[in-house]
Simulated assay, not measured.
Amino acid sequence: MLRRSRTYSGPVTDHFDGKRFYDPDGVPPKSLAQVLRWQFDRNGKRSRWPSWAPSAHADAPPHKVDGEAVRLSFIGHASWLIQTGGLNILIDPVWSERVSPFAFAGPRRHNDPGIAFEALPPIDVVLVSHGHYDHLDIRTLSKLTARFSPRVVTPLGNDLTMIDADSKIRAEAYDWHDRVTLNQEVAVTLVPTRHWTARGLFDRNKALWASFVLETPRGRLYIVCDSGYGTGAHFRRVAEAHAPLRLAILPIGAYEPRWFMRDQHMNPEDAVQALQDCGAETALAHHHGTFQLTDEAIDAPVHALHSALDQAGIPRERFGVLKPGQVVEI
């Protein structure tokens, strides 16, 4: 049985009204009526994914990466292992079979994680962007805690969700624009992103959501785990505050139907514009191909990304697409 977690309580700010968080440049999440409209209107419009779409790759990461190098391993969906400055950092780790409050229902994996859980190196830090089940996976966080006891850095309120479920999770909660030192060479800043969060029907936006700017010896990485595009202001502001950016990790999936998803998820065309807005040297795509959350085909995001890059005159190699288990090194 689901039980309600505690919710964040704090002073009113320009993005917290005393009860709920909000994006001054965003829009509220869709209503329950709109959710039902999408669900009842999708017959025949939802593409059928293959029951299993395995990757040909599986990573066996090193114990750690010292010096100035940065090693990024794609685990799948929005999950990454980033190794740099002697730290092993996981982004939105999900090793569960389903992204759902239930073990028996909800979106199911279509491929294995790119790194077997048993093959993980010692994890020092976990960054969790927000509370949606495809990003904040309590089962995975508990397994990581039992094995490695990492620091878990997350936006305000999500720490309560974690600790209520497992008091041993070492969750630390921060606000937008807070900078967190991870060691002498690596730090992370939480930055605004155009999204929202909830774990159930009655806790919408009672926790905060964020993207991350990760400072590494090889430059800054802009990690956008979930975001709509809007006017692009969020991406341009990150460029103004944190440029130069060596790499942006940008979502390209879970975008159809557009009338419903536009405000919370970018499509590939939006992602290409976001790359131009933030000014990163290169980008990597994610948030596609593992869990079917929306209506587009499993391969549609990659085809649409290539078309958008070609139309914008941007070389395809500037915006890479990995399969789970593939690795990029800077």
Rank of each mutant, 00 (worst) to 15 (best):
I123C: 00
G114H: 10
S100W: 01
T181L: 14
R139I: 09
H303F: 12
F235E: 10
H265V: 00
L182S: 03
G230A: 09
G86H: 11
R37I: 10
L127I: 03
Q39G: 05
R151W: 10
A271Q: 12
F102E: 10
V99N: 01
W259V: 08
Q276I: 05
P107F: 02
E240G: 00
G320D: 13
G114T: 08
Y255T: 07
P324R: 11
R220G: 06
W52C: 03
R151V: 05
G219Y: 00
F117S: 04
P244D: 01
R42S: 15
F117P: 08
V213E: 08
P11H: 08
W196M: 07
E317M: 01
A254V: 02
D17T: 00
V302K: 04
A210H: 01
S167H: 04
P62M: 14
E281D: 03
P113K: 05
A198M: 15
G228I: 08
L32Q: 06
W196D: 12
R246C: 01
R199E: 13
F104I: 13
R236N: 12
W259D: 14
L214R: 00
Q83D: 08
L250N: 03
E256C: 03
K19G: 02
L120W: 12
V188G: 05
W176G: 09
L87F: 02
G26P: 10
S307M: 13
V126M: 09
Q273R: 15
G157L: 00
E185K: 11
L208S: 14
S211M: 05
R139P: 10
P315E: 13
R46W: 10
E296W: 00
A312I: 11
I89Q: 11
A173L: 02
P155C: 06
L309Q: 02
V128R: 05
Y8M: 02
S9T: 14
T231F: 08
R6Q: 15
E296M: 00
P28E: 05
A103T: 12
V191L: 07
L322K: 06
G289L: 01
Q264K: 04
E118M: 04
G18I: 00
D263T: 09
S149H: 09
H234Y: 07
D270L: 13
K45D: 01
G106P: 13
D14K: 11
A105E: 05
E240H: 05
V153E: 14
D277F: 02
P315F: 10
N88T: 03
G325K: 09
R194F: 04
L81I: 14
N158R: 02
H286K: 14
V126S: 04
A53T: 03
F74A: 11
E97R: 10
A283Y: 07
Q184T: 12
H130E: 14
V327W: 01
F235V: 10
R220C: 06
A248K: 04
A198S: 15
V27K: 15
P121V: 08
A60N: 12
T13Q: 04
S96N: 15
S129E: 09
L284H: 03
Y222T: 00
G67Y: 15
V126L: 03
E118V: 09
F16V: 01
H15T: 07
R3T: 02
G18N: 07
Q292E: 05
R237Y: 07
